[in-house]
Protein backbone atom coordinates (compact mmCIF):
# COMPACT_ATOMS: atom_id res chain seq x y z
CA UNK A 1 0.00 0.00 0.00
CA UNK A 2 2.82 2.39 0.88
CA UNK A 3 4.29 1.61 -2.48
CA UNK A 4 1.05 2.53 -4.22
CA UNK A 5 0.77 5.87 -2.45
CA UNK A 6 4.44 6.69 -2.92
CA UNK A 7 4.32 5.84 -6.60
CA UNK A 8 1.15 7.89 -7.00
CA UNK A 9 2.95 10.84 -5.45
CA UNK A 10 5.88 10.27 -7.78
CA UNK A 11 3.74 10.04 -10.89
CA UNK A 12 1.70 13.10 -9.93
CA UNK A 13 4.93 15.01 -9.35
CA UNK A 14 6.48 13.91 -12.62
CA UNK A 15 3.39 14.78 -14.64
CA UNK A 16 3.04 18.04 -12.73
CA UNK A 17 6.60 19.06 -13.47
CA UNK A 18 6.28 18.14 -17.13
CA UNK A 19 3.11 20.18 -17.54
CA UNK A 20 4.53 23.10 -15.55
CA UNK A 21 7.33 23.33 -18.09
CA UNK A 22 4.92 23.77 -21.04
CA UNK A 23 4.73 27.05 -22.87
CA UNK A 24 1.07 28.01 -22.45
CA UNK A 25 -0.73 29.16 -19.35
CA UNK A 26 -3.42 26.49 -19.28
CA UNK A 27 -1.16 23.43 -19.09
CA UNK A 28 1.06 25.25 -16.58
CA UNK A 29 -1.97 25.78 -14.35
CA UNK A 30 -2.92 22.12 -14.69
CA UNK A 31 0.66 21.18 -13.86
CA UNK A 32 0.58 23.27 -10.73
CA UNK A 33 -2.73 21.63 -9.80
CA UNK A 34 -1.11 18.18 -10.13
CA UNK A 35 1.83 19.33 -8.05
CA UNK A 36 -0.64 20.53 -5.44
CA UNK A 37 -2.16 17.06 -5.26
CA UNK A 38 1.26 15.53 -4.93
CA UNK A 39 2.34 17.89 -2.19
CA UNK A 40 -0.92 17.51 -0.29
CA UNK A 41 -0.80 13.74 -0.42
CA UNK A 42 2.84 13.79 0.60
CA UNK A 43 2.10 16.03 3.59
CA UNK A 44 -0.81 13.82 4.48
CA UNK A 45 1.33 10.69 4.19
CA UNK A 46 3.84 12.20 6.60
CA UNK A 47 1.34 11.14 9.29
CA UNK A 48 1.88 7.56 8.03
CA UNK A 49 -0.88 5.54 6.44
CA UNK A 50 -3.61 4.01 8.54
CA UNK A 51 -6.96 2.67 7.48
CA UNK A 52 -10.13 2.74 9.52
CA UNK A 53 -8.88 4.91 12.37
CA UNK A 54 -10.09 8.43 11.68
CA UNK A 55 -9.08 10.99 14.31
CA UNK A 56 -12.60 11.17 15.73
CA UNK A 57 -12.40 10.35 19.41
CA UNK A 58 -14.51 7.33 20.44
CA UNK A 59 -14.92 5.55 23.71
CA UNK A 60 -12.84 2.42 23.82
CA UNK A 61 -10.69 3.27 20.83
CA UNK A 62 -7.03 4.02 21.53
CA UNK A 63 -5.45 4.10 18.11
CA UNK A 64 -6.03 7.09 15.89
CA UNK A 65 -4.28 8.29 12.82
CA UNK A 66 -2.19 11.43 13.09
CA UNK A 67 -4.61 14.41 12.97
CA UNK A 68 -2.07 17.19 12.55
CA UNK A 69 -1.08 16.61 8.90
CA UNK A 70 -4.76 16.36 8.11
CA UNK A 71 -5.47 19.76 9.60
CA UNK A 72 -2.54 21.25 7.72
CA UNK A 73 -3.58 19.67 4.43
CA UNK A 74 -7.19 20.75 4.88
CA UNK A 75 -6.28 24.41 4.92
CA UNK A 76 -3.73 23.80 2.18
CA UNK A 77 -6.45 22.46 -0.09
CA UNK A 78 -8.64 25.50 0.48
CA UNK A 79 -5.78 27.93 0.05
CA UNK A 80 -4.67 26.17 -3.11
CA UNK A 81 -8.11 26.87 -4.54
CA UNK A 82 -7.58 30.57 -3.86
CA UNK A 83 -4.13 30.41 -5.40
CA UNK A 84 -5.33 28.56 -8.49
CA UNK A 85 -8.11 31.09 -8.94
CA UNK A 86 -5.69 34.02 -8.78
CA UNK A 87 -3.27 32.38 -11.20
CA UNK A 88 -6.07 31.56 -13.61
CA UNK A 89 -7.29 35.14 -13.38
CA UNK A 90 -3.83 36.50 -14.11
CA UNK A 91 -3.39 34.13 -17.03
CA UNK A 92 -6.81 34.98 -18.35
CA UNK A 93 -6.22 38.71 -17.99
CA UNK A 94 -2.92 38.39 -19.83
CA UNK A 95 -4.56 36.47 -22.62
CA UNK A 96 -7.46 38.89 -22.95
CA UNK A 97 -5.11 41.86 -22.87
CA UNK A 98 -2.50 40.64 -25.35
CA UNK A 99 -4.20 37.80 -27.18
CA UNK A 100 -1.29 35.60 -26.21
CA UNK A 101 -1.21 32.87 -23.60
CA UNK A 102 2.50 32.12 -23.62
CA UNK A 103 4.13 32.04 -20.21
CA UNK A 104 7.53 33.18 -21.49
CA UNK A 105 8.23 36.80 -22.31
CA UNK A 106 8.64 37.39 -26.01
CA UNK A 107 12.27 37.27 -27.11
CA UNK A 108 14.11 40.58 -26.98
CA UNK A 109 14.13 41.11 -30.76
CA UNK A 110 10.44 40.26 -30.99
CA UNK A 111 9.69 42.80 -28.30
CA UNK A 112 11.74 45.40 -30.12
CA UNK A 113 9.86 44.65 -33.31
CA UNK A 114 6.60 45.06 -31.43
CA UNK A 115 7.74 48.41 -30.04
CA UNK A 116 8.53 49.63 -33.51
CA UNK A 117 5.20 48.66 -34.92
Amino acid sequence: MEFLVASAIGILTAAGIYLTLRLRTFPVILGIALLTYAVNVFLFASGRLMTGNPPILRDGVDVYTDPLPQALVLTAIVISFGMTAVVVMIGLGAFLGADDDHVDDPKADDAAAEDRS
Binding site: A6, S7, A45
Partner: peptide, 28 residues
Protein backbone atom coordinates in the same frame (compact mmCIF):
# COMPACT_ATOMS: atom_id res chain seq x y z
CA UNK B 1 11.27 18.30 -19.66
CA UNK B 2 10.41 14.63 -19.47
CA UNK B 3 13.78 13.88 -17.90
CA UNK B 4 13.40 16.66 -15.35
CA UNK B 5 9.87 15.48 -14.60
CA UNK B 6 10.94 11.87 -14.24
CA UNK B 7 13.83 12.80 -11.99
CA UNK B 8 11.58 14.96 -9.82
CA UNK B 9 8.94 12.26 -9.69
CA UNK B 10 11.47 9.62 -8.78
CA UNK B 11 12.80 11.82 -6.02
CA UNK B 12 9.31 12.46 -4.66
CA UNK B 13 8.57 8.74 -4.81
CA UNK B 14 11.79 7.75 -3.07
CA UNK B 15 11.36 10.28 -0.34
CA UNK B 16 7.75 9.49 0.45
CA UNK B 17 8.34 5.72 0.26
CA UNK B 18 11.18 5.87 2.73
CA UNK B 19 9.28 8.23 4.88
CA UNK B 20 6.22 6.03 5.19
CA UNK B 21 8.16 2.93 6.15
CA UNK B 22 9.82 4.59 9.12
CA UNK B 23 8.45 5.90 12.37
CA UNK B 24 8.97 9.44 13.50
CA UNK B 25 12.24 10.00 15.33
CA UNK B 26 10.65 11.96 18.13
CA UNK B 27 7.11 11.77 19.42
CA UNK B 28 4.93 13.90 17.16
Amino acid sequence: DGVIGAAGGLAAFAMSYHFMLRDAITTP
